[in-house]
Structures are given as C-alpha cells and as structure tokens.
C-alpha cells in the first residue's frame, strides 16, 4: 500500500522573513502506482461509489481543507 502523500524538509535560512514551514507535503494519489488496473479489485457499493467519485476502493483518496474542522487533510 502506497502512502497518499510524501513529505520533504526544505532549507530554512536564519534570515527568512516569515515563520518557516519545516515540513512540506505533496499529494501522491494511487493512480501513480497502479499501472494497468488488475482485475477483481474491491469495489464500493453503487451508492458509496456515487458519493466517493470512484467505484474502486484502491483509487479513493479524499482531500480535505485545513479549514474544515475535524477532517484532517495534508499536513500544511
């Protein structure tokens, strides 16, 4: 199972004008890793799939705003 985001630590100068973000993150959605989709992957139910935007659980990778309380999302 691949992680849906990766992090890195950019250089921080002692003279940076703003409070530095020590860890930056970027999205690495599941389509990057699948190659050709293999047969018989687990599916959502039809009503779940309409909500999720995909029939396939392996491709589900929701994104939440840091402004949406309690939803999480990428570390900013």
């Amino acid at each position: 199972m691949n992680t849906h985001f990766k992090t890195y630590h950019p250089y921080v100068s002692p003279f940076d004008p703003c409070k530095p973000i020590l860890e930056k993150a970027y999205s690495t959605p599941p389509n990057l890793y699948m190659g050709f989709q293999p047969p018989n992957l687990p599916q959502f139910t039809p009503s779940e799939a309409l909500k999720a935007g995909t029939l396939w659980k392996a491709f589900y990778d929701p994104w939440f705003s840091p402004l949406e309380p309690g939803k999480g999302g990428l570390p900013q």
Binding site: N31, F59, Y60
Partner: peptide, 20 residues
C-alpha cells in the same frame, strides 16, 4: 468542498485511465 472532493477524485480516475 464535498462537491470539489468528488471532482478531484474524478481527476485521479481519469489520469489512471489515460495512463492505461
């Protein structure tokens, strides 16, 4: 954001299909 999340998920699936 709920609607936007759906649209973002579709981008993931479309990208997958183009890769295939």
């Amino acid at each position: 954001n709920d609607g936007l999340r759906f649209l973002r998920e579709r981008e993931i699936v479309h990208s997958q299909r183009f890769r295939e």
